[in-house]
Nucleic acid binder design. Structure first.
Length: 461
RNA sequence: GUCCCGUUCGUCUAGAGGCCUAGGACACCGGGUUUUCAUCCCGGCAACAGGGGUUCGACUCCCCUACGGGAUGCCA
């Protein structure tokens, strides 16, 4: 059996899109589970829109998320000769012809066709003219006029196209450069690709590409057309309806593993299992089980999955990955006397790193503002805080359990409700009523800092 | 317009003719733990697009309609 080779073939006209990450992921996983190769090919034949900057973004992001190719990526823009040679071969075999129709003429033709209610497509008017190559001619594939072509899709089964639905596509532009279809087919062959896994927007391109393969005498490929990732408006995910670039999600503090997990579960599932790491996917994923219908990308599922992946991290890993997010807030993670206790207590405060970093601010910096509503609700007068301050000063063994005991005593002796005692302290320490359990929070801040913050609040109100 | 692909809870999905009183997860709502917040636990809400067949029996098979998406470029 032939070694399975898959490829991800982005065109560098934008940053890496999460839909693209999913396509790359499925290609990667399929290759790995078949002990094959995963390749990347940069389809930069559109010189106007392709940029090196986007190419770098795509390559960097893919490898940092763990989807590195097994060979150095190739650029189509550097392989012109190969395509030209293939085109010549098609001309020689009589399966292509030169056409001198101008863009204006074609435009007019399409308009007329549309007006007449028929499918706009090139009518083959230059096909039998026997034109020679010139500066005004494009090379067109002579597509068989009748019969049909069957695409065998791993996910969808047989898809039949009538050859008369297909027009004679352009292989070489008038400036001599090759087009997408030609390059794509030639490179899949040159790279020994066995399996094409791509978005379903390519389904109708497939029969055209098969015709090119046939003209060139290339062997058949295996195809799997993935359902598209959709936005909440059910249209394909784009900048208009969602954050699409992988980078944005990473910068928000979503874990790579959680992003991959979410993407894999979009259009695919395995029993009741929800948590998948890359290794699990290589074990459990089955391309045949992929859904046929497009799937809406739901950020709340990502949020939940992220919280699950975050919870699975060791404290060390958690801290390491959190660090850059704190740095963005000009906070150095070790600028605290008991970092481990702090982070351990706060790691579930949000489901993204950026959110967690945000909620950590009061633990690293002085309080800039108090939650006024909380103050009016819980601080009627200063007496309770004053007494608590005196009590704190006298606690020698400053740890969670002893603090809790002291607080409990104070509360019962003075016949106060729990919130009457606890909330003012929370406000003093964090500026709001949100914090871990009280004794723990006080322990996190330490005796000195706790007293200082109670004093600060006392002088504020 | 034409061709192609699709259609199960709000969302991701399970479901290969009887196992379906349609299951799970997220979200949402309610309750419990945390005397706060988050986590966690428990419970609830909620779907087979519509119509025809086929069959003793259809979420499952066939046809039609509707709706959605994709393609129809000297873009990829």
């Amino acid at each position: 059996m032939k070694k399975v080779i898959t490829r991800f073939a982005p065109s560098p006209t934008g940053t890496l899109h999460i839909g693209g990450v999913r396509t790359a992921l499925f290609n990667y996983v399929y290759a790995k589970q078949n002990d094959g190769l995963f390749l990347i090919r940069i389809e930069d034949t559109d010189r106007e829109r392709s940029t090196k900057k986007y190419e770098k973004d795509i390559l960097d992001n893919l490898s940092s998320i763990g989807l590195s190719p097994d060979q150095k990526p190739i650029n189509q823009s550097e392989r012109n000769e190969i395509y030209t040679k293939a085109a010549e071969k098609i001309v020689e075999s009589g399966n292509a012809y030169w056409c001198d129709c101008s863009p204006e003429e074609l435009d007019k033709m399409r308009n007329e066709q549309t007006a007449a209610g028929i499918k706009p497509m090139y009518d083959g008017r230059s096909r039998n003219l026997g034109l020679e190559r010139s500066e005004k001619t494009v090379l067109r594939l002579a597509t068989p006029e009748d019969g049909d072509i069957i695409v065998n899709d791993i996910i969808r089964g047989e898809i039949k196209f009538n050859n008369n639905e297909l027009d004679d596509l352009i292989l070489l532009r008038s400036d001599g450069t090759p087009t997408y279809h030609l390059c794509n087919v030639v490179d899949d062959y040159e790279q020994n690709v066995t399996t094409v896994i791509r978005g379903e927007d390519h389904i109708s391109n497939t029969p055209r590409q098969i015709h090119i393969q046939n003209a060139l005498g290339y062997p058949e490929l295996e195809y799997a057309h993935l359902p598209l990732v959709l936005g909440t408006d059910k249209k394909r995910l784009s900048k208009r309806n969602a954050a699409t670039s992988l980078k944005e999600y990473r910068e928000k503090g979503y874990l790579d593993s959680a992003i991959l997990n979410t993407l894999a579960r979009l259009g695919w599932s395995k029993g009741d299992k929800e948590i998948f790491y890359l290794n699990d996917l290589i074990k459990d994923f089955d391309i045949k089980e992929v859904q046929k219908a497009g799937a809406i990308f739901d950020i709340s599922k990502l949020d939940w999955l992220n919280s699950q992946h975050l919870a699975n991290l060791s404290l060390e890993d958690f801290k390491n990955q959190l660090e850059p997010f704190l740095e963005k807030l000009n906070i150095s993670i070790n600028d605290h006397h008991d970092v481990d206790l702090l982070i351990q207590s706060m790691r579930t405060s949000d489901n993204t790193y950026s959110g967690i970093a945000e909620s950590l601010i009061p633990y690293y910096r002085e309080i800039e503002s108090y939650d006024e509503k909380a103050i009016t609700k819980f601080i009627k007068d200063k007496s309770i805080l004053n007494s608590l301050k005196d009590i704190f000063v006298n606690i020698d063994n400053w740890n969670e359990s002893s603090i809790d005991i002291v607080l409990k005593e104070f509360q019962t002796q003075n016949e106060l409700s729990v919130p009457a005692v606890n909330q003012p302290i929370r406000i003093a320490l964090t500026g709001s009523t949100k914090s871990p359990s009280l004794g723990l929070t006080l322990a996190i801040f330490g005796k000195e800092k706790s007293i200082e913050r109670v004093e600060n609040l006392l002088s504020y109100v």
